[in-house]
């Protein structure tokens, strides 16, 4: 998912250790040669390797937290939503329950199989309805995020072809994503700038019909339980000139959920 990271897998821990060693060696090498790494080392990593590293870094095995979503329109009108967020299986299964404002209180979404299956719960009628996957193209509570944007980053691998492009930036790799045939994504390309040091995304650019539609910025990266976490994510809609910020208020990783947590029964609780 967009939020959180995962270092649970031992293999990954080892991988990160190797990266650190590699970075240390690189730093020594730069000092000796006085050059930056882009030309010599950046190009050594294939796009797939960078993507794999990024998804491992930003994909927690499980997490739960409380978040605040602030929408700011072009006319500077603000709306604030608060929601509880739960994810498991590296973001494949997600449950979102809105707490504020009162209008959407206890409205909840259960997203499974990386966004392929979505159920929505309306507390006033106690009704649960399954939505077709096209519904993920709709705006989440009027924000600049679509439900698709909340889907697991595994979709970047399954729905898109990825290539590395020159970023023109010292600190970031640039990955360019184009949809696979029949993937049914909303976007006709994505660009992700990935930090070379920690493989955490710096920003994502969304394109629709060739137009740069939105940019998602990952800001204020802090470590929670040793896992780097963007405490603030800013989505800018360049067409509507609006912004949505998601701020992490509370976050806990490696949570063990009940077997029935990501079910319709729990959605209605």
């Amino acid at each position: 998912m967009l939020v959180g990271q995962n270092l649970k897998i031992q293999i990954h821990l080892n991988f990160m250790k190797l990266l650190k060693i590699s970075k240390t060696l690189r730093t020594i090498f730069y000092l000796i040669l006085g050059i930056n790494s882009t030309g010599l080392f950046g190009a050594d990593f294939s796009a797939k390797t960078i993507l794999d590293s990024m998804t491992i870094v930003m994909q927690p095995n499980s997490s739960q937290g409380k978040m605040e979503q602030e929408i700011i329109t072009s006319s500077n009108i603000k709306r604030v939503f608060t929601f509880n967020y739960y994810s498991e299986d590296k973001g494949k299964n997600v449950l979102i329950r809105y707490m504020e404002p009162r209008k959407v209180r206890n409205n909840a979404f259960l997203i499974k199989n990386s966004g392929e299956d979505i159920w929505v719960y309306f507390p006033r009628t106690r009704r649960v309805r399954k939505l077709a996957s096209h519904a993920k193209k709709q705006k989440a509570q009027g924000s600049d995020f679509s439900y698709e944007d909340f889907s697991g980053s595994e979709e970047w691998k399954t729905d898109y072809r990825v290539k590395q492009k020159p970023s023109g930036e010292r600190n970031n790799y640039l990955l360019n994503f184009t949809p696979r045939i029949g993937a049914g994504t909303s976007y006709d390309s994505l660009k992700i700038y990935v930090n070379k040091l920690n493989y955490y995304p710096d920003r994502m650019l969304y394109y629709q019909n060739g137009v740069h539609l939105k940019t998602l910025n990952f800001q204020d990266v802090k470590k929670i339980q040793g896992i780097p976490t963007a405490m603030r994510m800013l989505m800018e809609n360049h067409l509507e000139d609006s912004k949505t910020t998601i701020r992490i208020l509370e976050m806990e990783y490696n949570v063990i959920f009940d077997r029935e947590f990501f079910t319709e029964r729990n959605l209605k609780k």
């Binding site: 399954k130 077709a132 996957s133 096209h134 049914g184």
Partner: peptide, 10 residues
């Protein structure tokens, strides 16, 4: 029954 066929909700 509710589901999806060719990206259409049915």
């Amino acid at each position: 029954i509710i589901g999806e066929l060719w990206k259409f909700g049915l």
